[in-house]
């Protein structure tokens, strides 16, 4: 464990908690893409099946349980409890165009052709593109609530910190996982446009609005 991975995990945890509290407190999921949240629930489910087979540390196990629990709770709030506030008309990204290619790629490019490893690879590739429905929805509505931008900021920051963690681990431990690194680079690049808007607008107290 290094400081970059720890702050990355805490940034990820912050994002998940911010979103869950935003929906719970405001009793509304307006502006939130339910499709992205379903994809994230799929990412955690397929990646953390090793909860049943391997014990690494209390930290590792507890964080995985928290991530899975919060992501399913978020999906539940969006599609069940606060379903009336779900903005389905703007959450129209065709997720099959993400899941099918990612599924195919995880069979073609992986470290080991075993069920757990293919599911892990699938979750890595899926996580790289899981935010697209959310970014697409913001581009369609032309704006995002400020709390939603903070959620996206911490979510994007977490994988950027992981990239530094991988540089650190390669240099000090000789560890590197090409699949995770390439997917992590793609994932972080997808946030660059948002990061620019976040820094130039939200941090200056303005609302995030895209030229519709």
């Amino acid at each position: 464990m290094n400081i970059f991975r720890l702050t990355g995990d805490l940034s990820h945890l912050a994002a998940i908690i911010i979103l869950l509290l935003k929906i719970w407190k405001s009793r509304s999921c307006a502006g939130i893409s339910g499709k992205s949240q379903i994809l994230f629930a799929m990412v955690f489910t397929t990646r953390y099946l090793d909860l049943l087979t391997a014990y690494i540390s209390l930290y590792n196990t507890s964080m995985k349980i928290i991530y899975i629990g919060c992501s399913y709770a978020t999906v539940y709030l969006i599609y069940a409890k606060f379903k009336a506030t779900y903005d389905g008309n703007h959450d129209t990204f065709r997720v099959e165009f993400l899941v099918v290619p990612v599924g195919g790629l995880s069979f073609l490019v992986n470290h080991d052709f075993s069920p757990l490893e293919i599911l892990w690879t699938f979750s890595i590739y899926l996580e790289a593109v899981a935010i697209l429905p959310q970014l697409f929805m913001i581009s369609k509505t032309g704006e995002a609530e400020t709390i939603t931008t903070h959620y996206l900021f911490f979510l994007g920051l977490y994988r950027a910190l992981y990239l530094i963690n991988w540089v650190w681990r390669f240099y000090f431990e000789g560890f590197f996982d090409m699949i995770a690194i390439v997917a992590g680079v793609v994932q972080t690049i997808l946030y660059c446009d948002f990061f620019y808007l976040y820094v130039t607008k939200v941090l200056k107290g303005k609302k995030l609005s895209l030229p519709a």
Binding site: R5, D9, H12, D50, A54, I56, N60, M63, K64, Y67, N110, H111, D112, F113, S114, E117, W120, Y162, N165, F175, D177, A180
Partner: peptide, 10 residues
């Protein structure tokens, strides 16, 4: 397939 990396990351 190269050897499987230890999955100690989240």
């Amino acid at each position: 397939e190269d050897e499987v990396q230890a999955k100690d990351e989240l």
